[in-house]
Computed example of a mutant assay.
Amino acid sequence: MGWSGSAARLPRVPGTDPPTLSPTVGRRWLAQEIRRLREAAGLKQTDVAKRLRCNPTKITHPESVRTPVGGPDLEVLLPFLGAPAERVEWYLRVCDLAREKGWWDGDRSIPDWFSLYVGLGAGASEIRCWDTGYVTGLFQTAAYATALLDNPGAVEARLRRQEALRRDDPLVVHAILDEAVLCRRIGGAGVMRGRLDHLGALAGLPGITIQVMPFDAGGHRGHLGSCKWLGFPQEGDPGAVYLENQFGGWFLEKPEEVAVFQADFAASAALAPSAEDSAALIAERAEEVR
């Protein structure tokens, strides 16, 4: 059984709450902590390599999301990096959680390059997305996803990702859709009506904000293409921006890069009609295809 999105939690530390943790988010958080501790100690990666008696190329692994550090190496690293003694067990427990398998690991319907996004999305606390071509995956109906993907396994995986909206601490989503997304006919009139009705229903749920950028809005930064920002519950984490094209997906995580996306998204949200007016536009488009 893979990680379901409700069982794994960061161990409790006095004065903190244990946020839900997907293994992928755990690996990301642990990698950030190792890098933070190393930089605070004034050490280079080569210094750490000497302490672990390993090839310098291997020392990039502890600071990598894709190749998590092992428990034995972490036990050696933490004192060397100056981690407080009372936090050592916390870090080791996170290491154990981070090495668990998520339901997306090994799923053949999920490309390797997309698996990282699925894992991070499963443990994100907030997502902000701008979409120009299709309804964002978290908001797709089964019929719409089937028309897009024509792959039952991929459809099942996409619908399973939507479980994040039904967690005990549900994912907060702010989506801005280009009006073209509402008008593009995919799968026939019935599928189109279904997805518009579904969007209308989602728009009324707590934690979900849907805005539609109308054709007459004029020029805006959203014309640069679809993108998503994933926010995480760990304090001080700026989140990550996810971009995708025909060849795969990649992340922008430097604070200055994330800040540009945040500014562009805020400007688009200010330009687009309110969530209430957008819901009215979605309902209007749904009536046109009945």
Rank of each mutant, 00 (worst) to 15 (best):
G5K: 02
S6Y: 09
R9T: 03
P11D: 10
P11W: 10
R12S: 10
V13W: 11
V13G: 06
P14S: 13
G15H: 03
T16Y: 08
P18S: 15
P19E: 10
T20C: 09
T20E: 10
V25K: 01
V25T: 07
G26A: 07
R27Y: 08
Q32S: 14
I34K: 06
R36E: 13
L37F: 09
R38A: 11
R38T: 01
A40R: 15
A41W: 02
A49H: 04
R51N: 04
L52P: 05
P56Y: 12
P56K: 12
K58C: 07
K58N: 10
I59P: 00
T60V: 08
H61G: 05
H61T: 05
E63F: 07
V65D: 04
R66I: 08
R66W: 01
P68I: 09
P68K: 03
G71D: 08
P72C: 14
L74W: 08
P79N: 13
F80C: 12
G82R: 06
G82W: 06
P84V: 09
A85Q: 02
E89S: 15
L92N: 00
V94P: 00
C95Q: 03
D96Y: 03
A98Y: 04
E100A: 01
K101R: 15
G102T: 01
R108D: 09
P111I: 07
D112W: 04
W113V: 02
W113S: 06
S115D: 07
S115K: 11
L116S: 05
G119M: 11
L120G: 08
G121R: 00
G123F: 01
S125A: 14
C129W: 00
W130M: 13
D131R: 15
G133A: 13
V135Q: 04
L138M: 11
L138T: 00
Q140E: 09
Q140C: 04
T141F: 09
A143P: 00
T146G: 15
A147S: 15
A147T: 05
L149G: 05
E156M: 10
A157K: 07
R158N: 05
R160A: 10
R161G: 11
E163V: 03
A164L: 05
R167L: 15
R167F: 05
P170W: 03
H174Q: 12
H174M: 07
L177W: 01
A180M: 10
A180N: 01
L182I: 07
R184G: 06
I186Y: 08
G187I: 04
G188Q: 10
A189I: 07
V191F: 11
M192R: 15
R195D: 03
G200W: 00
A203T: 00
G204C: 09
G204S: 13
P206C: 09
P206V: 06
T209R: 15
T209V: 14
F215K: 06
D216W: 07
R221C: 10
R221S: 14
H223Y: 10
H223E: 13
W229N: 07
W229A: 12
G231E: 04
P233V: 06
E235Y: 02
D237Y: 10
A240H: 09
Y242S: 08
L243W: 09
P255I: 09
P255H: 08
E256H: 13
A263I: 08
D264C: 12
D264N: 14
A266K: 14
A266I: 04
A270Q: 13
L281A: 12
L281Q: 10
E284R: 15
R285K: 14
A286V: 04
